[in-house]
Design a protein around this nucleic acid. Sequence first.
DNA 1: GTCTATACAACGATAGAC
DNA 2: GTCTATCGTTGTATAGAC
Lengths: 211, 211
Amino acid sequence: MKQPAATSKSESRIRTERQARILKAAETVFARRGFNGARLMEIAAEAGLPKANLLYYFRSKEDIYRAVCQDILETWLGALGDISAADKPDDALRKYIEAKMDLSLKRPNASRVFAMEIISGAPVIGDYLARDLKDWVDKQAGVFRIWQERGEMAEVSPPHVLFLIWAATQTYADFSTQITAVLGCEKISRNEYKKAVDTVTGVVLRGLGTR
Amino acid sequence: MKQPAATSKSESRIRTERQARILKAAETVFARRGFNGARLMEIAAEAGLPKANLLYYFRSKEDIYRAVCQDILETWLGALGDISAADKPDDALRKYIEAKMDLSLKRPNASRVFAMEIISGAPVIGDYLARDLKDWVDKQAGVFRIWQERGEMAEVSPPHVLFLIWAATQTYADFSTQITAVLGCEKISRNEYKKAVDTVTGVVLRGLGTR
DNA sequence: GTCTATACAACGATAGAC
DNA sequence: GTCTATCGTTGTATAGAC
């Protein structure tokens, strides 16, 4: 059998552990090589497993990739809460931006895989974008409009505000190569990271007139 | 001879024309498939040339890719002028953002190839980033600091302001798939594009206190 | 200068021993 | 459940006819 059902608790446990290790390694490799550039050998090495093992736990390379994308989407939906009209705009947005920055820096590879997937036309997660993400944006846009009616937020297009925040925060993961090159450092330091958060929150919140 | 020197004006003219066609096609294909996913066959088809022709004008696939990157860098350096301390911050920044937006929308594929290259760690253009782009940023940061001393700009980190502007404008090229999915449209319309420019300039300029 | 035919390498996937 | 050996495909690059 190629994809045996778990027949005992211990087998299932090994399976789960191995799959998690493979997905973690795959995320790293897909992030630096892209889907087509990624080699099963490299993923196997990164995971510390023999290559044949990968295709024992997953049917194909594409299957691994889909699982990685799935995992990323679930993490993001879970980590980024909703914003409600009852929240104070300044607090809520500051928290959202900080959470997004934090995620970009804690899982830069997830962010990069996601970015490449979208640049390539989102062949795998396109449906998610058009359904779940669209719903989420429509709801948040409604909240922004309520704030605007109350005069608590400048009159700018709500979805485009979200695009701006996403872009500004993700760039610290996706484009870290460019950022370190321009800053002339090896790695984005803790101090530089703080400057980044301050700049993004400062410009965006002042720009939206929420304070 | 594999890469013959042009022996007459007309040969040279054909050569130049063919190379330009190949580079244009390559930019399109690299943008949607990435370097590794791109196939010489697909580039040839896109260029309307026989496949063997590509490797007659360029030594290898990597050579084509390098030429595409080179072309993109030159375009960008040429199209985006400098900002001088003598300029009025509001005008100068508005013009810069508009130019950057315009470029992202006129050559989205160039933007995407550039993005993927950086996400992959900038193996080809890394030197350019650390040298030319760094110099440019250092110079512009100086201008921003002068404005800040005059009280014409909020006290935020100059390089991070540039990262923010780059991210916000490039997202309309690189992430257009996500944007159209969320907005529920086929293509970013002229009207939506105007909203995008207004939102980015509005939030950034107000956020920087230049007006 | 153009194109066909092919050499050669790399990789994903599988079969089957242990 | 693990691993080796190998198949078949695909894609870059080249040799050589026209």
